[in-house]
C-alpha cells in the first residue's frame, strides 16, 4: 500500500510537471502580451515594463526561471494586479471558494444522493417523476440562469436574502443553491440509475432470499455497490466546486478564486494563468487519487497497487 501511494505521488509530480510545461508554452504561443494597455503607452515605457517582468528574455530562459520558482512554491507576481503575488491570490481566494464549495458538496450528500435513492426505491411512481423532472431542470438550466432567477426572486422581490457577498450565513444560500444545482441534480440522477442497475443484480435477490431486512439490503448491498460510479464523478466534481466558479462568484460578488483564471487568460497575466492551472491540476490529481483509495474500501475486488 505504501509503495502504491509513493508510486502514485511520483506519477502525480511528473503529470504536474508536464501540465506546467505544456501550459507555459501554449500560453506564450497565444498572441498578445500582458501590457497592452487601453491608454497610450510609448514604446520605451512598454519596453521598460516588459524588462521589469523579464518578458524580453528568451522564452526558454523564462521557462526555467518559472520552473525553478515553482519548485520552491513561488508562483511569482501577478502582472496585472501590481503588488500582488500569485501565492497570495490563491491564499486569499481559495478558502473563500472552498467554503462555498464545501456547502455545495454537503448539498450533494444530503440532497443529491438521498433524492436519487428515493427515486430508485419509488421507481416509476410520482416521487420518481418529481425527482427526475427537477433533476432534468437542474442539469439543463445553466447556473447563471438559476443564479439570476434566484437573485430576482429572493433578493429583489421578496428581499429576504442579500443580493451579494457572503458576509452573513444568509449570503451563502443563493450562491450555494446556484452552484450546487447542477451537481445535486447530476448526482441524484446517477444515484437513481446506478441503484436501479444494482437492484437487478443476483446478489440482491440472494440477500432478500436470506431474509435480510429491507434497509440493510439497501444500505449494505445496494448503496455500497451503487456508489462506485458516483464516487468516480464526485472526485472531479468536488475539485471543481472547491476551486470556485467564475460565473457564480462574479454574479454574487464573492472574492474567491473562480474569476482569476478566466480573467487571467484574457489579460495574458502569465504567472496567474500558470499558478492557477498548476494549483487546480494538483488539486484534481489529489481528488482522483482519493477516489481511487475509496474504490478499494467500497469494493474489495478492486486491489490497489497491482
Amino acid at each position: 500500500m505504501l509503495k502504491y501511494i509513493i508510486q502514485r505521488l511520483l506519477a502525480m509530480i511528473v503529470t504536474l510537471f508536464m501540465i506546467a510545461t505544456i501550459t507555459f508554452f501554449l500560453m506564450h504561443a497565444v498572441p498578445g502580451g500582458p501590457f497592452a494597455s487601453e491608454q497610450k503607452v510609448p514604446p520605451e515605457v512598454q519596453k521598460a515594463l516588459e524588462d521589469k517582468y523579464h518578458l524580453n528574455d528568451p522564452v526558454i530562459k523564462q521557462y526555467f526561471d518559472y520552473m525553478s520558482g515553482l519548485i520552491r512554491f513561488d508562483l511569482g507576481p501577478s502582472f496585472k494586479f501590481k503588488g500582488v503575488t500569485v501565492n497570495s491570490l490563491i491564499q486569499r481566494g481559495f478558502p473563500v471558494s472552498a467554503k462555498l464549495g464545501i456547502f455545495s458538496v454537503l448539498a450533494i450528500l444530503v440532497l443529491g444522493i438521498p433524492l436519487g435513492v428515493i427515486a430508485a426505491l419509488k421507481h416509476n411512481k410520482w416521487q420518481d417523476t418529481c425527482v427526475r423532472f427537477t433533476a432534468t431542470i437542474g442539469i439543463t438550466v445553466p447556473s447563471f440562469v438559476i443564479a439570476t432567477v434566484l437573485l430576482y426572486i429572493f433578493a429583489l422581490k421578496l428581499r429576504i436574502l442579500p443580493s451579494f457577498g457572503i458576509e452573513t450565513w444568509k449570503g451563502y444560500v443563493l450562491p450555494v443553491a446556484a452552484l450546487s444545482g447542477y451537481s445535486v441534480s447530476f448526482v441524484a440522477r446517477l444515484t437513481r440509475s446506478s441503484l436501479l442497475e444494482v437492484f437487478r443484480q443476483d446478489y440482491m435477490r440472494t440477500a432478500r432470499a436470506k431474509g435480510l431486512g429491507e434497509s440493510k439490503i439497501l444500505i449494505k448491498h445496494g448503496l455500497k455497490n451503487a456508489l462506485i460510479p458516483i464516487v468516480t464523478v464526485l472526485g472531479p466534481l468536488i475539485a471543481g466546486l472547491l476551486t470556485g466558479s467564475f460565473v457564480i462568484e462574479s454574479i454574487f460578488a464573492i472574492p474567491g478564486m473562480g474569476g482569476y483564471f478566466v480573467n487571467a487568460i484574457s489579460n495574458r497575466d502569465y504567472t496567474v494563468i500558470m499558478g492557477i492551472t498548476v494549483f487546480y491540476a494538483a488539486f484534481l490529481l489529489i481528488m482522483i487519487f482519493i477516489v481511487d483509495l475509496i474504490y478499494g474500501l467500497l469494493d474489495p475486488r478492486i486491489k490497489l497497487g497491482k
Binding site: T148, L151, L156, I251
Partner: peptide, 18 residues
C-alpha cells in the same frame, strides 16, 4: 468601495437599497 463584477447584481443591490 465594494467590488461587484456583475453589473446586474450591482443594480439589484442598488434597487434593494443594500
Amino acid at each position: 468601495f465594494r467590488t461587484i463584477p456583475e453589473q446586474t447584481t450591482a443594480l439589484t443591490a442598488m434597487e434593494t437599497g443594500d
